[in-house]
Design a protein around this nucleic acid. Structure first.
Length: 725
DNA sequence: AAGGCCCTTCTTTTT
DNA sequence: GAAGGGCCTT
């Protein structure tokens, strides 16, 4: 039977096992996704399990989509009724169906990270606490952790003063969520667990349906998710988990790789399979990865091997500074693309923090090489995108106060502090939510009993906005989403608003159009689905699949992906490992796993890059090489770039290959600055501009020029054909 | 009410 | 080196 054809014996063992609980410990590149998809195909095709009775959980929507496609291909059939998605998406689906038993109704809004923090901030203010002393981020973090450990506000125990603060905020925070018909990310899981605990009949309904439960990336489940898995499989007890302790990188989000050990304790009969053959990387890459991960104390030892041969040496490039780091990456890519050795999509550049992408992006722009940037936050966190989504959320759920407050005066429509205070006051007195007050004013205008509660001017302004809201809601009832989208943009003059905002170089309107394009994909499914999808997108979901270009992404976002050529940049102590992880051994171990994940993404070629100096907000500071670099056997490495100076450890004899820079400007001439700040110049594409800064970078001159229509651009004098005016 | 200016403060990772 | 907050002026 061809479903099993391309499997090795360990994989086959996992796919066809008759055991009820199966734990597959799968090293990187060992065919974990393949095992998962073939297992599903095997169950359906061979064991005649109805897809309707299968539940599979992945970590990203992208992984879910890919998995569905692969299973379909294997069995040449549709997968009617199969449930496959992220924990959050699956829980949202259940909660909407069973909303009768929840503190919110089926139209609930899902709060994203920004919303959550804003809400916490609001509560802190409301309770008269000092924001400086009670960092909203960390309080929200504590609340989130509590929820992931299944602690309600009531059951949250306060041992120290800080816990009391958290508890107080938690109570009010949860109240606000309920009264505005919202849930946060963590509630999706927590409410489902409680729903099952408190309603045996509902629990039975789902548990008896799901004859087989499968889960990917099991090492990154938190307590709530682990309990959910047990609940889902409580009737048939068929639980198939795939994971790898060494790739656990979400501890800070409540994930606990010890769930793997817990699984073995909870299900002593479980069948355990180790996948150790790696099909992805060369031996050199695997040896480097192993050198790094072997330093972690608590782990199941795995003997990863490959038949792909030794492969090329790993390049360790030491840059002068972070500009040089970016230049090295882009030069190397440019060279390998021009020789035809690789195409754009073969490359990935990974870093620890999102901020590190900036210089890389600029370098790619300068070299005129398109690139793909992975990161949902970068799009959905944009002000204009959040604004439009807030309007839509308001249409969907007028009680969503956070959205209302966000956009009630965007663009400015004369609703200021005074009017808002009045609105809050009336809302409290009458027990009507601000959104519903607006709707009432919008519908009845001066006829409304509420009219007299407001000042003349305030009343008119609020009623104006209310009228728009009423109109939008009416349209939303039967018109397709893009039509609603357009009406909102039109009614609010949003285009004009962002175009006249006077910010240079920001293509805000393009982001709005991009969001509109996205809305088109929801012609049939409508507003609710759109908002839910938007709330639950993961970073990896934003990877433009069709563009064959180098990919920029964080190490976290890299999990589960692979690339022929991988650059890991910023290998300096304080960046990787990150400075925030320095004083906790558990966090340090996680940083190491993060590096391990990065290394093992590489199929053929691995570049490790660090910079002797980095600009951390404005000022340059020197760095030390990442401590993890010491754990890579020297014989795997070829060192390039600048020579380590006195700060390197005495006695560590290192071979450095001095390489001529092969940028476009290698001509041996000593550079003389040609440009001065204040000069007027003309660029062939961008037109006239003024030089605001120049600096000599290796053999080239780097200019910052402000263009009339393009804003500030950084360019290299040797590449940009500038004309001095 | 709104916009401009200067100040600080901060930057992990994300479903 | 950006973004938000506070304070000023119009």
């Amino acid at each position: 039977m061809d479903i099993l054809k391309h499997l090795n014996s360990q994989q086959k063992e996992a796919v066809t096992s008759d055991a009820k609980q199966i734990l597959v410990l799968a090293g990187p590149g060992s065919g974990k996704t393949r095992v998962l998809t073939q297992r599903m195909a095997y169950l359906i095709y061979e064991k005649h399990v109805n897809p309707y009775q299968i539940l599979a959980v992945t970590f990203t929507n992208k992984a879910a989509r890919e998995m569905i496609a692969r299973v379909k291909k294997l069995i040449h059939a549709e997968l009617e009724g199969l449930w496959l998605g992220t924990f959050h998406a699956i829980c949202a689906r259940i909660l909407r169906r069973e909303a009768d038993f929840l503190p919110v109704n089926a139209n609930f809004i899902i709060m994203d990270a920004d919303d959550q923090e804003a809400l916490v901030k609001r509560v802190i203010k409301e309770l008269g606490m000092d924001e400086k002393l009670n960092n909203p981020y960390s309080i929200h973090d504590a609340i989130s952790r509590a929820k992931n450990n299944l602690l309600t506000a009531k059951s949250y125990t306060a041992k120290e003063y800080r816990d009391e603060v958290v508890k107080k905020v938690y109570v009010r925070y949860q109240n606000l969520l309920e009264s505005t018909n919202s849930v946060d990310f963590d509630d999706l899981l927590f409410l489902t667990v409680r729903l099952f605990e408190e309603h045996a009949d509902i629990h039975r309904k789902y548990a008896s349906r799901f004859e087989h439960v499968l889960v990917d990336e099991f090492q990154d489940t938190n307590l709530a998710q682990y309990i959910l898995l047990k609940q889902f499989s409580a009737f048939h007890h068929n639980l198939f988990a795939v994971g790898d302790e060494d790739q656990s990188i979400y501890r800070w989000r409540g994930a606990d790789y010890r769930n793997i050990q817990r699984f073995e304790e909870d299900f002593p009969e479980a069948h355990k399979v180790l996948l150790e053959q790696n099909y992805r990387s060369t031996q050199n890459v695997l040896d480097a990865a192993r050198g790094v991960i072997d330093q972690n104390p608590v782990r199941t030892p795995k003997a990863l091997f490959t038949q792909r041969g030794t492969g090329q040496a790993i390049t360790l490039y030491q840059a002068v500074d972070d500009y040089d780091e970016a230049a090295f990456v882009v030069d190397t890519i440019q060279r390998q693309m021009s020789t035809g050795e690789h195409q754009g999509g073969d490359f990935a550049i990974m870093y620890r923090t999102n901020a590190q992408s900036r210089l890389l992006e600029e370098a790619f722009l300068r070299a005129q090489i398109p690139y793909r940037l992975v990161g949902a936050q970068r799009f959905y966190g944009r002000r204009e995108v959040k604004d439009i989504i807030s309007f839509l959320r308001l249409v969907h759920n007028p009680e969503d106060e956070l959205s209302l407050m966000r956009v009630i005066n965007v663009p400015p429509r004369g609703i200021g502090d005074k009017t808002l205070i009045a609105l809050q006051l009336v809302s409290q007195q009458k027990g009507i939510s601000p959104g519903n007050i607006l709707l009432e004013l919008g519908e009845k205008g001066q006829e409304s009993a509420l009219w007299q509660e407001f000042s003349n001017r305030g009343g008119f302004m609020l009623a104006d906005f209310g009228r728009m809201l009423v109109r939008w809601r009416k349209l939303a009832e039967n018109a397709p989403l893009p039509e609603l989208f357009d009406l909102i943009v039109q009614d609010t003059d949003y285009h004009e608003y962002i175009e006249t905002a006077g910010e240079i170089g920001l293509n805000r309107w393009e982001n709005v159009l991009e969001l509109r394009r996205l809305a088109y994909e929801f012609l049939d499914s409508g507003l609710t689905t759109f908002l839910e999808t938007v709330a639950l997108v993961s970073d990896q979901d934003t990877l433009p699949e069709t563009l064959n270009a180098p990919t920029l992404l964080t190490l976290h976002a890299a999990k589960g992906l692979e690339f022929p050529v991988v650059f890991i940049v910023g290998l300096d102590d304080g960046w990787l490992p990150h400075s925030r992880s320095m004083d906790d051994p558990e966090e340090m171990a996680e940083e190491r796993r993060l590096f391990y994940v990065g290394i093992t993404r590489a199929k053929d070629r691995l570049y490790l890059v660090r910079a002797e100096q980095r600009s951390t907000f404005g000022s340059f500071s020197s760095t030390y090489p990442s401590r993890f670099l010491e754990d890579i056997p020297e014989n795997l490495l070829v060192r390039q770039g600048m020579v380590l100076h006195s700060r390197s450890k005495p006695g560590s004899e290192m071979r450095w290959e001095s390489v001529a820079k092969q940028g476009p400007s290698t001509n041996g001439n000593k550079p003389i600055p040609h440009y001065k700040p204040g000069m007027r110049v003309r660029h062939p594409q961008w037109g006239e501009g003024m030089v605001i800064e120049t600096r000599l970078d290796n053999e080239d001159e780097v200019l910052s020029v402000i263009f009339e229509n393009e804003g500030i651009k950084r360019l290299s004098a040797s590449v940009a054909k500038l004309e001095i005016l």
